[in-house]
Write a protein that binds this DNA or RNA. Structure first.
Lengths: 136, 136
DNA sequence: CCGCATCCGCCACGATACTG
DNA sequence: CAGTATCGTGGCGGATGCGG
């Protein structure tokens, strides 16, 4: 998602060929286009879960990035954070209704990806081969 | 998106709680999660178009980034590039069948975004207000 | 008109260490 | 067990200039 971010939105704001569509998608991508958000949502879609559980299931996410990602999702009302002030602490995360509603469009994307990855892969290989020929 | 990128996929590859879903989505986000890809697709969804036309319609995209984005899409077989070797040059871009098939799931996302942005915005404001209180 | 190379600023991400 | 702070790095994205 890399990076629409707040920095450059000015130019985009002034444009309206079909603002509803492209800007809306842009917004979502800003949100879920980062490295871990989608994985967290997918993981939490199976039910409420503790911090470490999420971390272990995803695997490969750093402690810090998981915290940051979860805070972001909490901020946008996509997950709830419930802290039990016990010793040791126990924190549970759960998708909100809003968060769960995102699963469906995400599934659509995932379905598309699964069906078309071979085609993309093929196109990519073909393209790179052409590139190779040009250089020789 | 902005940045899953190839760099870190190693850790993710070893994990399979529901690999089909999350990895597939991850792949797509790697592709379309950057700053301009979705906008380009949306723009081209209206029909074949010349480079400058796309640039003008999107507005705010640098010459270089549009080139890069289009090359990426071409590489993955999502758009075709047709150059007419006239003077001055004229290049037309058009979505392939594969590219057009991506519009549907994108629409799903855009629909979700449009319906829920108010909710997200509200949650965000609420969350930030709480943050403010804590700091005081 | 379009593509490509170079230079550079900036931010997402990761590793580590410390607190409660 | 969970969160925060700090620091370092890679690579995206913008500006500009040349080539065809």
């Amino acid at each position: 998602m890399t990076k629409l971010r707040a920095a450059t939105k000015s130019a985009v704001d002034n444009e309206n060929h079909d603002p509803a569509d492209c800007r809306a998608v842009g917004q979502v991508l800003d949100r879920i286009g980062d490295k871990w958000t989608v994985m967290v949502i997918d993981t939490l879609s199976k039910g409420p879960m503790r911090f470490n559980a999420v971390m272990h299931i995803i695997g490969g996410v750093s402690h810090r990035m998981l915290t940051v990602t979860l805070r972001g999702l909490e901020r946008d009302g996509l997950v709830t954070r419930t802290a039990y002030p016990t010793i040791p602490p126990k924190v549970e995360y759960e998708l909100t209704e809003l968060g769960r509603s995102l699963i469906r469009p995400l599934k659509a994307l995932s379905t598309w990806a699964l069906s078309n990855r071979p085609a993309i892969e093929a196109a990519r290989v073909r393209f790179d081969k052409e590139e190779g020929k040009k250089r020789t």
